[in-house]
């Protein structure tokens, strides 16, 4: 390989590895702040029936967590099949424990 070839491959590699900017992470941050503010506002305002508020708060939390795990923890990037399986497994057991505990105290 000549020196010129080497330089060419090097440039090609450099090009394909262009760094992502901070923009999309700042958008995720602002999105998280907004979801949090909505959740706080819903509780402070009150008035609406409790069951609806509870479901609404949980929905806000789940959306925020999914977005943060997707972008900040890179779960949406390719090559993350096993991590996703690990996390779904963890959340499945966690969810089972929560449902069981609630079932046990409510009925």
């Amino acid at each position: 390989m000549t020196s010129a070839d080497h330089q060419a491959t090097h440039d090609a590699v450099k090009h394909s590895q262009r760094h992502e900017g901070p923009q999309k992470h700042i958008i995720v941050f602002i999105f998280s702040i907004i979801l949090t503010a909505i959740a706080f506002a819903a509780v402070i305002a009150g008035g609406v029936n409790t069951a609806f508020t509870v479901l609404f708060l949980l929905l806000m939390a789940i959306i925020q967590v999914l977005v943060q795990m997707g972008y900040w923890m890179h779960l949406k990037d390719r090559g993350h099949m096993m991590p996703i399986i690990f996390m779904i497994g963890g959340f499945f057991v966690a969810g089972t424990a929560i449902v069981t505990a609630l079932y046990w105290v409510w009925w």
Binding site: F86, A94, W104
Partner: peptide, 24 residues
Amino acid sequence: LSFWLFLGGEAVLFGTLFATFLAL
């Protein structure tokens, strides 16, 4: 990769603590 397995375990740990909290 193995850190993700650990985080899956952490999710279970916190899940059981949340379950206890919600029950009590």
